[in-house]
Amino acid sequence: MKANAEQTKNQTAVQTSQESAWKHVTSFAVMIVLTAIAFAAVATNLVPSHLLVPLLLTLAAVQVVVQLYTFMHLNQKGSGFPVAFMASGIFIGVISAVALMILV
């Protein structure tokens, strides 16, 4: 009985990971596209210059979120503490970097 249940559980695990393999390839494609946009924006001068830096930073931020939530599986249950601490780290990091940039 118990072994049976475990086997089913393992099977579902296999299934989910097969599905998620596709999910990962998709998010990889998204990342490549985002990167391509960033490089293209710089190479082609299509974007007005005052919008360029904000655009680049937004693209990078989106990529990071995609990485954290798909590749690094922060979307999984029980990720509360990692999410909280990564968020704090990013928050403190951004404050520190910006301060170093504008206050020195």
Binding site: G89, G93, A99, M101
Partner: peptide
């Protein structure tokens, strides 16, 4: 390890700031 990565985030942020 996640916590360590949180610390690494701040470490790299400081290098970026510099």
């Amino acid at each position: 390890f996640w916590l360590f990565l949180g610390a690494e985030t701040v470490l790299f942020a400081c290098l970026f700031g510099t």
